[in-house]
Amino acid sequence: MTRKRRRLYTLLLALTGLGVATALVLTAFQDELVFFYSPTDIAANKPAPGRAIRLGGMVEQGSVQKLPDGVTKFRVTDTARTIDVTYKGALPDLFREGQGVVAEGMLAGESQFNARTILAKHDERYMPPEIAKSMKKADGEQQHSTGTLLK
């Protein structure tokens, strides 16, 4: 086999690999991207029902209710809007009222969210960048509309 031939084969093989990978990535992206929503985002632009999303915000003070059979209900807020969350299972160690939380699951009804997983953090001082951003955004909007200064 000549050098040119070999190069052609290698190139073809590499291109096929790249093509397959791109196809795999694109189809996977189409179905499996999980978008992040704050309660305000959900009110403004409702995600399609049955689509997995991530909901992030603060666990509202005094909202955590523990029901029998390991079900927990609480409210997630970004200071502007609030949404009810139901979750069955053990909560991560750093799940607390007044602390940031990210829940993955689906929207069920107007302002009801069924969480499949509650993402834990390892560090109390850590705030996921999305939450920090959405809190800041909600703060800004509220300041704008009511003229009060939060924080």
Binding site: A21, L24, V25, T27, A28, F29, D31, E32, L33, V34, F35, F36, A52, R54, E104, E130, K133, S134
Partner: peptide
């Protein structure tokens, strides 16, 4: 926009 790419993506790609 904030998105996260979870296990299903890796399972498929």
């Amino acid at each position: 926009r904030s998105v996260s790419v979870g296990p299903p993506y890796y399972l498929r790609s």
